Simulated assay, not measured.
Amino acid sequence: MNWDKMLGVAEEITDRVGKQLLHDFGQAQATTKSDGTLVTQSDKWADRTIREAILQTFPEHGVLSEEVEHIFPATEWCWIIDPIDGTTNFARGIPLWGISIGLLYQGTPVFGHVAVPPLQHSFHGFWYGDSGLTGPTGAFLNHQPIHASSAEPSGNQLFNLCARSTGVLCNPKPFPCKIRMLGSASYNLLTIAAGAALGGVEATPKIWDIAAVWAIVQAAGATWYALDRAAIFPLQPGQNYRQRSYPTLVVNRPEFVSMFLPWVQFLGESI
């Protein structure tokens, strides 16, 4: 794999698509999909444009995307696309949404790129695990290295919830950190990679919400914990991932998984 070419293609695509999405931002009319989430014509246009651009450059690769293709292909390399992560924010004029592109090798993410056009933020990271691949390493924000925080939980540190994890607030014990809710699954978890938050939880993310971020978060030294205790990767060829959710806890240091689990483990049990 020519990693420089691959990163350049991902950045060029998201820059081009992001400029058009900024033009549509706050003006697109949203409709409700069968799973209760929103979709706009901007989502559909961005999905199609990104898929076409990737296949034009990498015709031998597979593509799985939120709006069109949900069956994982039998190809060695596959891209997973979330054309607008945070569609509700996008449609309502809240400037926190992103374009997420992950590259999988033999079913497991090895590269992630997430552009957040309203903030002019561009995240990317490389995480090879036990794939046997070699290349550049690390996680980056606007090409500057980022790392998970080494701080201890406290009332001055942040932890992110999602809209479906507010049951955390029913626990009578005081939560170890200040709570935030951002409205974008990828940005929720990327704040941990960047050291801004100590942890975050997503109750029902789909594979396109997490494929790119999975690589970036781990490249930044954070810890990913599947709340349903099921292995996420490798994805299986021929399987339809449209309905599958992956309840997830991400924390800055592995020893803090046990600290936050009493508040969030019910999310894995409810899936």
Rank of each mutant, 00 (worst) to 15 (best):
W77T: 14
E66I: 12
A91L: 03
G107Q: 03
P95V: 02
G62Q: 06
S100M: 09
L96K: 05
F90N: 10
L64Q: 03
I50D: 06
P118K: 08
A139Y: 08
V110C: 08
T75L: 08
Y105A: 12
A139K: 05
A139M: 07
V110D: 01
I50G: 09
I80G: 06
C78P: 00
W79N: 09
T88C: 00
R92A: 15
P117Y: 09
P136C: 03
S122L: 13
S100G: 07
R92Y: 03
G132Y: 09
P118Q: 09
L119V: 04
T75Y: 00
G125Q: 06
E67P: 04
P73M: 04
D82L: 15
I80L: 13
F58H: 01
L103V: 09
F90I: 11
F58P: 01
G107N: 07
P95K: 05
F126W: 15
W79L: 14
S131P: 02
H121R: 14
Y128P: 01
A91I: 05
D85M: 08
I81A: 05
P117F: 12
P59H: 11
W77M: 14
G112N: 02
Q120D: 15
Y128F: 15
F123N: 06
T137N: 04
F111H: 05
A115T: 11
I54G: 01
G98I: 01
I71V: 15
G129N: 13
